[in-house]
Nucleic acid binder design. Sequence first.
DNA 1: CCTCGATCTGGACTTTGTCTAATTCCCGGA
DNA 2: TCCGGGAATTAGACAAAGTCCAGATCGAGG
Lengths: 139, 139
Amino acid sequence: MAFMHYTRDNMASLLRSHDINPTHQRIEIAYALFSRQEHLSADQVMAIVNTRHSETSKATVYNTLKLFLEKGLVREVIVDPSKVFYDPNTRPHHHLYEVDSGRLSDIDAAHVRISGLPALPEGMVTEGIDLIVRVRRAQ
Amino acid sequence: MAFMHYTRDNMASLLRSHDINPTHQRIEIAYALFSRQEHLSADQVMAIVNTRHSETSKATVYNTLKLFLEKGLVREVIVDPSKVFYDPNTRPHHHLYEVDSGRLSDIDAAHVRISGLPALPEGMVTEGIDLIVRVRRAQ
DNA sequence: CCTCGATCTGGACTTTGTCTAATTCCCGGA
DNA sequence: TCCGGGAATTAGACAAAGTCCAGATCGAGG
């Protein structure tokens, strides 16, 4: 799958193989994501899909990305500070996030070992390393 | 510092020791965070600080939390999907996030070793482990 | 060609956070 | 005590990202 050509036909099979009904809009959105092999935000997907003329609504883009997520076709990466928690504990530690309840608790840093990070980009410094284990209720 | 009593007077010293001018509002916000030793979101802080009657504006709460963050008094934990990236690569890997530019790139999972995670809470399953290394331009 | 469930749509709405111009606070000097 | 002025605070308008809903449309199977 990794080396396939990213054609719209192949997107249709990809969707079907993930138990997703391949509609025009879903195929376009999948094509936008996979042909670029980049991390895209919802509005970037919107922009790409509607380049020529408006074809796909905002609601559909959001619904489709959520569907792809459920079906394991894409991963979600949360990076931007929008809904943020402020933690008075500044000692090194990591976090366990219960998706259902929104509860956030600590994981002792001693339990986590991270090594061999690649060199940082030129002129960059580490602002923080955040390990967030996301858990939810089974089923 | 870890075992001090969380009085408003102590908050004032704590703020001064972090080079923060201790105003009424800042003391109340620090007290809310530290006396609870919990992860609080901005609107939770708002609610706590304005329990009796409205005393502190939204802008001040946000400004103050940002100030505390800069001065290293609190940490920021990003957990909730608000600004999200969708990643077509579902193979195990982690992420390098450049705060300034918003650019997001991959770190091969082979370069990162995470071990000794604690047992999950009863009835919980892992939804994902996200290691996000946040970097920014020096100075 | 029809039907009907699945999908899609525009647009109103919510949430979280930012911005700004005006006001208030408070400290240090006279 | 009074005053000046910079720091801090405020209300409220605004912005960005995402959700929701009722109606319109699509398209596969009969």
